[in-house]
């Protein structure tokens, strides 16, 4: 692959845009949280997020969320192109306010769980998941 002057300039601009990108992604995450909580304060404790410290493959990362008494738990992957993952709404016949699933992570990042608790307050838990880059495309 050969680069022309114009390509190189384009790459430089792209790189400049990339350095700005995290703020934009962060903003999308903030918006999702705002929409879910209405801007309420997020306390620590009351919600638990279980995720592997290292994911062998970012395509399929097992996670579990749990928040006793919660009516809903929202999960966000703040480093993904779009931060939303899922919102679990628990009905009257949920035996526990807990669920497991498998998610996609675009790279090493913080996964966040926010629970709407029984008393209407909100709690937050987060976990850093390192995503390894494979050796063999195979």
């Amino acid at each position: 692959m050969e680069f022309t002057r114009r390509d190189t300039l384009g790459l430089a601009l792209g790189a400049a845009a990339l350095t700005v990108l995290p703020y934009r992604v962060h903003a999308a995450g903030e918006e999702a949280i705002q929409a879910f909580t209405g801007g309420a304060e997020l306390k620590e404790g009351g919600v638990q997020l279980t995720a592997p410290e290292i994911a062998e493959n970012g395509n399929t990362v097992p996670i579990e969320v749990s928040a006793p008494g919660a009516s809903a738990i929202m999960v966000l992957a703040l480093g993904n192109p779009t931060p939303g993952v899922a919102t679990f709404n628990f009905g009257p016949l949920a035996a526990s306010q807990a669920a497991s699933t498998r998610i996609r992570l675009a790279g090493t990042q913080d996964v966040v769980a926010i629970a709407k608790l029984e008393d209407g307050s909100f709690a937050k838990a987060s976990s850093t998941v390192k995503v390894t880059i494979g050796g063999c495309g195979g």
Binding site: V61, G84, A86
Partner: peptide
């Protein structure tokens, strides 16, 4: 459950 594209 509301599901978004980050579900595997």
């Amino acid at each position: 459950i509301e599901m978004l594209p980050a579900i595997s």
